[in-house]
Amino acid sequence: MMRWSWGNKRLLVLAGAFALLLLAPLLNYYYDINFIQGWYQSIGIGDFWIVSPLEGLESLLVTREPFGPLLAALFFPVLLALLLGRVFCSWICPITFLTEVSERLKKLLSKKTATPERWTLFRQMLWFALGLELFLTLVLGAPIFVFMSPPGLIGRELMMLIFFRTLPLEGLIIILVLILNLTSKRFYCRYLCPLGAFLALLGMKRRVRIENILQNCKGCRTCDRACPMGLSPSVGEGTTVYCWNCGTCIDNCPYGQLVFKVKKEESRPPIPMQKRS
């Protein structure tokens, strides 16, 4: 069996997540099947509801009253972020899908290397973006990110296209974000995305991290050049809060020195693997 690289697996998941955004409105519009509704602001698969954590937080902050279904719908994405970190960004987000697809097309057409790192800012910019966004939300009394969020907007544009045959003007934000992402490597995701910042914050103590096992590392820094977030996994930056567990560095390491490591709690003894009768 062929071993799939993390990049290919991830592209498959991203494509599936994007296809869901197209499938849901098509099923709803043409077949009146309401099994799946919504997109990555809130998606309902049958009675399993998910609300994006930042949007849910904004709604709670503005209304100042908890609503049962909202809290329940926040449970799963928050748990995912707590355990795996910012994996929504790298494995599901439609912006990442569109960015990666255009990057791959660009590579096929022009034989050029990946998007350059044209502008680099402080990594801490991400927290500033989150703070500013939450502050503005509270000042204006209306959630900002919910109608400006690029991953949500893609879903909204696709739904509006299928339901009303129009594309709302807010879609320009998507184009702007894609231009930023393709001009300088993941510029929006790295420095400006409040949702990414919030998920990163939740995943600060995540269980799965990328570590350099340092047995055979030659210090070639191939992984550092490959990292879409501009980190240096060779010196252990894969364990920092900024890593989004995409696995690109693992694919690119010629010596197989980088691995996903599941950190177990030290206090608890390891669970025996054999089945209990």
């Binding site: 009146d32 994006s52 919910v146 739904m159 709302p168 003007l169 807010e170």
Partner: peptide, 28 residues
């Protein structure tokens, strides 16, 4: 408008397509 997270699920389930979304001209 502070509560709604603009997920559009109400639009998608409406069997008569009565629900529409306000566009950016309506500000917040």
């Amino acid at each position: 408008p502070g509560k709604c997270i603009r997920c559009g699920r109400c639009v998608e389930v409406c069997p008569y397509r009565c629900i529409e979304l306000l566009d950016i001209r309506h500000g917040l």
